[in-house]
Design a protein around this nucleic acid. Structure first.
Length: 129
DNA sequence: CGCCTGACGAAAC
DNA sequence: GGTTTCGCCAGGC
């Protein structure tokens, strides 16, 4: 399981002083695993990385998502309520909602429609169901 | 170094 | 069940 390794790496590379190469990158990669037309939650991502309780760190990491080489589909990541809490951090505040709609995801009142059915569980990318 | 903040979440009241 | 508070860990001043 990659998640197992990821969890250990988190504390393994600590002494190296390269935290960014772990938590951040792990979050980015995981978010990139989110299939189009699907969404995920910060907590779910954090949990998959072993930092279940640190869901805020995930969202915080997203702040740097726009600084990463490859573009991270942060717009596919919402809070556990399916709410577009991070829309304020996009160039245009409505970019997030627009991107989601472009992928076929309905957004109403800054909230993902049928979020629970569109919810994508990280770590098990193989089971799209 | 210490205090406050933050794209969340879950327990406590 | 809604509102409030703590926890989580890193960043900025």
């Amino acid at each position: 399981m990659a998640k197992k390794q990821a969890t250990e790496k988190l504390k393994t590379v600590r002494p190296s002083g390269k935290m960014d190469e772990n938590f951040f990158s792990l979050v980015f990669e995981l978010v990139r695993q989110i299939p189009k037309g699907r969404v995920s939650s910060y907590g779910a991502i954090a949990a998959s990385l072993g930092t279940r309780s640190s869901a805020r760190m995930v969202g915080w990491a997203m702040n740097s998502s726009h600084r990463v080489k490859p573009s991270v589909p942060a717009h596919r990541v919402v809070n556990r309520n399916g709410m577009l809490t991070g829309k304020h951090h996009f160039d245009p505040p409505g970019k997030m909602e627009a991107l989601l709609k472009k992928e076929g995801i309905k957004v109403k009142n800054d909230q993902v429609v049928e979020f629970k059915k569109l919810f994508w569980d990280p770590g098990k990318e193989v089971g799209e169901g």
